[in-house]
Design a protein around this nucleic acid. Structure first.
Lengths: 275, 275
DNA sequence: CGATCGGTTGAAGACCTTCAAAAGCAGTGG
DNA sequence: CCACTGCTTTTGAAGGTCTTCAACCGATCG
């Protein structure tokens, strides 16, 4: 039921973010700054070949020379501050985006202007593919913390794919991965009770943080309770109550948006047996 | 909130199926035989160039010569009888499938063996793309009526895409279209009440039948109440009750799996204002 | 300081599910 | 032709899950 990351572990593990999240009295609970991932040095030059997200991203399977060609079409200098839009529904589509660091949410706005969060995306994940068929973005993407993003002009990507079959193949794999993730979201919304959904959601985050070299048991939620509820098809109160319940049962420890999973097996068991 | 078909209408409209669905006393309510669509003659030879699904499918945007190349890799002779599996979860992935005629459901089996329907697919729709990233099918596909299917070996498609950029582009559009459809399913499951979901489901079928030249207001449900409920995240009883309610209100007329939409605007209004 | 925002907690109630029973329809065999 | 069986669908009643409404807390900010 969880988002699958069938790719291997990241080659160059980065330090766990745990140290950054020690709770200090009076600490401002503003979301983390974009967490530097290995190559995010101040004088950063676009370079897929040295990017630690290599195995989660488009260059996987490419020969070094081909990665250089990819580098030439990627504009990786874009930064977005918390709250900034990466794109809005209706914007013309020119480029795909890969998150280099940070956290985005994707949401729809209904006729009454209510937000409906359909996804959360983190480093190495591809944004905007749903716009290919319509030539416009269909949803909104907003940074939940300061983010660095690689922009990949889509027509360049298609052209380059012609000369680099491995790039084409990896792009197809990434789109396919997105479809699997969405089908699992559908299964979650269609079959699971509130307890299972929230447990599955935490496990999904855990796995994705783990796959990026961060602690899978101790992380900071970039999204509000409202956004979680929205994403899981539940009310904000239900999310709050369940987090409290999980804490009472000793499965997690919650301090505002700081989450520590104390009993990973117990959390997995909740998905299977909501009791 | 509905599945979008941003492509144009089918060029060669085919006769409405209404005539076939006149309710006669004692009529067997076995699902319709695969409905012949223009070129489905007995001595059918694989030919994308003469297929009426042209604009819904991979050949869209290709030059005639390129369509011929596509024809050469497509095996379009495959037939599936009602209840037959097109593929099963875990099967190795070699080819994508496009439905030529008929109706498939996609479902997952949970640990206890319960089915969970995640999608219904009809003519012109692409099946199996979620398997690209894992090299195995992740779900099961079963024919809900007798079906004809085009099989497209995936490595051939990737190879051909290199020489035909328009084919590559159209393939990307189809994958993107699938992602949009799934995001709309997510929105439906995450935000809508039972009434809205069923109304949206009927409207979605209506639109898809309409886009294929069939009557958008009078069609035959290929799936059971259980499969509908499963797909919409609702119980079979709720589906039954709501269909009865819609009929009482004069919005639709239901006879077993035969559905006539009497008030399309009313149905749309139910999605917006579940009342 | 008061206002606001995000989060927590309690109580009431809506919505949908589950349980249960019966009806409708199809297929089989006497 | 009818009785019997099995399956799907319908309908009613009871019950559970989750939402909504409301109050409150703590932190932040002008």
């Amino acid at each position: 039921m969880l988002k699958v990351w069938p790719l291997g572990q990241i080659r160059n593990r980065v330090p766990s973010m745990d140290g950054q999240r020690e709770k200090r009295k009076g600490e401002s609970l503003v979301p983390l700054q974009s967490i530097p991932i290995k190559v995010s040095l101040p004088h950063l030059k676009a370079s897929c070949s040295t990017c630690s997200l290599y195995e989660l991203c488009l260059p996987l399977g490419l020969k070094p020379d081909d990665v250089d060609f990819l580098d030439q079409i990627v504009n990786s200098r874009r930064k977005y501050r918390r709250g900034e839009h990466l794109y809005r529904a209706g914007d013309p589509f020119h480029a795909l985006f890969v998150i280099k660091s940070g956290f985005f949410k994707i949401f729809d706005l209904d006729a009454e202007g209510r937000e409906k969060t359909t996804g959360f995306y983190m480093a190495g994940e591809l944004l905007g593919i749903e716009a290919i068929s319509t030539n416009r973005f269909n949803y909104n993407a907003v940074a939940l913390e300061d983010c660095a993003v690689c922009e990949i002009p889509f027509c360049d990507l298609e052209k380059l794919s012609i000369t680099i079959p491995a790039l084409s193949h990896q792009f197809h794999r990434l789109m396919s991965r997105e479809i699997i993730a969405e089908q699992q979201h559908i299964l979650m919304l269609g079959t699971m009770k509130a307890i299972q959904r929230l447990a599955a959601f935490l496990l999904n985050l855990s796995q994705r943080f783990g796959a990026r070299g961060y602690s899978p048991t101790h992380f900071y939620l970039r999204m509000s309770r409202e956004e979680i509820g929205n994403y899981l098809g539940l009310s904000i109160e239900t999310i709050s109550r369940l987090l409290s319940k999980f804490q009472e049962e000793g499965i997690i420890s919650v301090h505002s948006r700081d989450i520590e999973i104390k009993n990973l097996a117990g959390l997995k068991d909740l998905v299977a047996n909501p009791a």
